[in-house]
């Protein structure tokens, strides 16, 4: 017997998650794992030369951090689409807060697609990332 995957409700909020603060070692480990060795994220003097007061976190580390949040909330859903726009940088030593909300549920061949709006904010509340994930029933 199989259990039907139930669509999330429009307006449903995922549990907020705070990540960080991020150290230089965190940035270096992400650079190693991802292959993104842009010196902007690794060299404080280089980052200052581009107007940053400290090394900024890789934007992709921030966007990718939404995936475990989504998976822990609903392990029966799979990410079909993930999009993010990087706005205000999260700097070394700072935390970020991740929140997500179901904005829309559409019907699809697989049953449904739920559209989650993603928002990451800096410690001061500025938008660091705005994005969207489209979620459907995970393949069994």
């Amino acid at each position: 017997m199989t259990t039907k995957c139930v669509a999330p409700r429009v307006g449903e909020k995922l549990p907020a998650r705070t990540i960080g603060p991020f150290s230089a070692q965190d940035l270096a480990r992400y650079a190693e794992a991802s292959g993104d060795s842009n010196p902007l994220h690794l060299d404080a003097a280089f980052a200052r030369g581009f107007g940053f007061s400290a090394r900024p976190l890789h934007g992709m580390k921030l966007l990718a951090a939404f995936e475990p949040l989504l998976a822990e909330w609903r392990p029966d859903l799979a990410v079909l689409h993930l999009h993010g726009q990087f706005l205000t940088p999260i700097l070394e030593g700072e935390k970020a807060q991740l929140t997500a909300r179901i904005a829309k549920v559409e019907s699809s061949e697989a049953g449904f697609v739920a559209v989650a709006r993603l928002l990451a904010q800096t410690e001061k509340g500025a938008p660091a990332l705005m994005g969207e994930a489209r979620l459907g029933p995970a393949p069994r």
């Binding site: 842009n38 966007l63 990087f86």
Partner: peptide, 12 residues
């Protein structure tokens, strides 16, 4: 000049 990640999309 320096490439800075502005947006990213994955569609599966």
């Amino acid at each position: 000049g320096l490439p800075v990640h502005e947006a990213q999309l994955f569609d599966y």
